[in-house]
Amino acid sequence: MSKRRPYVRSMDGWWKRDAYFVKYMAREVTAVFVAAYAVVLLVGLVRLAQGQAAYEGWLAALKSPLSLVFHLVLLATFVYHTWSWFNIMPKTMPIMFVGGKRVQPGMITGAGLAAAVVACLAVLLIVRGVAS
């Protein structure tokens, strides 16, 4: 008769066990904010379709202090999303060689972050250009 009795430990609260897991969960939670922003935009779009008054109501709501604070939080989470997205990116790419040398993970992350900065600046400048 076997006296084995393997003990299975609970996974409850696993994300609190390691700072790395906390960071991972923070990354995943950014999705809630991305969803929230998408909903804000979708509401704006629907209001736009409903006519000028409706749309301007939406614009006015955006100017409320609550909305401004909320968007500041959104901005922070989006920046964290950008940072974490390119941080995990080297894991998602096949091993690459340039000139016979392996492309290091740091270079992929760096290139991604640089691309994000350029893209953001481009969006800002284009919007400003078109608007004025």
């Binding site: 080297p90 894991k91 998602t92 096949p94 091993i95």
Partner: peptide
């Protein structure tokens, strides 16, 4: 993580 995620693509 790289072995797995590059295979997702």
């Amino acid at each position: 993580a790289n072995a797995i995620n590059q295979n997702k693509m």
